[in-house]
């Protein structure tokens, strides 16, 4: 009697423990954010029935793409325990520089080569600013936060100033059709923007997961001293991370600019929260050494999903601000809880 009671109590306790363990495993799982996306969608169906339609999901997908591209770069930089606040300025400056080259009203180039040349110039702008960021950090011993804060202000201001030389308004119009097609054409039924973003995601995933550079990035993020003593080229690794981030921001700028069909110097201004937020929601750590492309994909999905549903609900900008801010806080809180109570990281 007593024995059986003890046994059943123990079984109960163990069941409780395994239930707790299962819950813990779920919270720890890298698919948590995806699960939350699904859950959120299901909950929202009664309020926003449109969410169950293909059109809305096509919208979500196309909204996700440029953001995802920027976030890929930010993920790389966060992995090395850096941060890149300059992505917004890169997006803006690349947009107006590219537009000024290929615009059909008095651009630097015309003809079929204008658009490719402009895109190359845009990527160069991203790589150049990334290089400047990286050199400042590795050679001048400056903290990434301050460097990119200064460069984002400098190049953000430059973008606005640059526009004044090429347009009487605040934007540069008349971009060639070839370029605009990036924003609205398909390849075999798949939008070009999606093809670009998926390719970028696959490449970044490949670099992080399967290459020597990828391992170096994680090692530098976890402990740059140990990495250096072990023969890792720490400076080159940091430099690569910032150049990649700059180029990915420029690539995003190509997609954004093509979608808008105009080059505008305030293109990137409002997306900093989305960029950092999406990456952090996905689970990439601000302290370096931890992060994955798939996490960032889920983070971007979650953020865009919220954005879309709120817009469908007719929420105003300020409600969107408040809710997005709260979601990011919640994600950060979840991350600290994971760290503190489950001893992860």
């Amino acid at each position: 009697m007593l024995v059986s009671e003890a046994v059943s109590r123990r079984a109960e306790r163990e069941a409780g423990r395994s239930r707790w363990k299962a819950a813990a495993r779920f919270i720890l799982s890298e698919y948590l954010v995806l699960a939350l996306c699904v859950l959120y969608t299901l909950v929202m169906i009664p309020f926003v029935p449109e969410i169950a339609t293909v059109e809305v999901w096509q919208n979500i997908l196309s909204d996700m793409m440029p953001l995802l591209i920027v976030c890929l770069g930010q993920t790389i930089v966060l992995i090395i325990a850096g941060i890149d606040l300059s992505v917004t300025a890169i997006i803006s400056l690349a947009s107006v520089v590219g537009a000024s080259i290929m615009t059909q009203s008095d651009g630097y180039l015309s003809g079929p080569l204008a658009a490719p040349a402009a895109m190359a110039a845009m990527l160069l702008v991203g790589a150049g600013i990334g290089l400047l960021n990286g050199l400042s950090i590795t050679r001048l011993n400056m903290p990434a936060f301050m460097v990119t804060l200064a460069t984002t202000n400098f190049f953000g201001g430059s973008a606005i100033w640059y526009t004044t030389f090429h347009s009487t308004t605040t934007s540069i119009y008349d971009l060639p059709d070839m370029f605009i097609s990036i924003g609205d054409r398909d390849i075999a039924g798949i939008p070009i923007a999606v093809v670009i973003a998926v390719a970028a995601a696959l490449i970044v995933h490949g670099v992080l997961a399967y290459t020597i550079l990828g391992r170096w990035l994680y090692a530098v993020g976890k402990n740059p001293r140990t990495a250096y003593v072990s023969g890792v080229p720490v400076r080159t690794t940091i430099l690569s991370a910032f150049i990649l981030s700059g180029m990915l921001a420029a690539l995003a700028s190509i997609v954004y600019t093509a979608r808008l069909q105009t080059g505008t110097p305030i293109l990137g201004e409002r997306i900093l929260l989305d960029v950092i937020g999406a990456v952090v929601i996905g689970g990439t750590s601000l302290f370096g050494g931890k992060g994955k492309v798939i996490w960032t994909v889920f983070g971007v999905l979650f953020l865009v999903l919220i954005d879309t549903t709120l817009k469908l609900l007719g929420a105003s900008l300020f409600v969107i601000y408040v809710i997005k801010g709260s979601v990011i806080l919640a994600a950060a809180l979840l991350d600290t809880l994971r760290t503190r109570y489950l001893g992860v990281r």
Binding site: R215, A219, K222, N223, V229, R345
Partner: peptide
Amino acid sequence: RNEGLLMDASIVD
């Protein structure tokens, strides 16, 4: 601790 190992990395890494 500070120069020999990546404390947060696996043995393989």
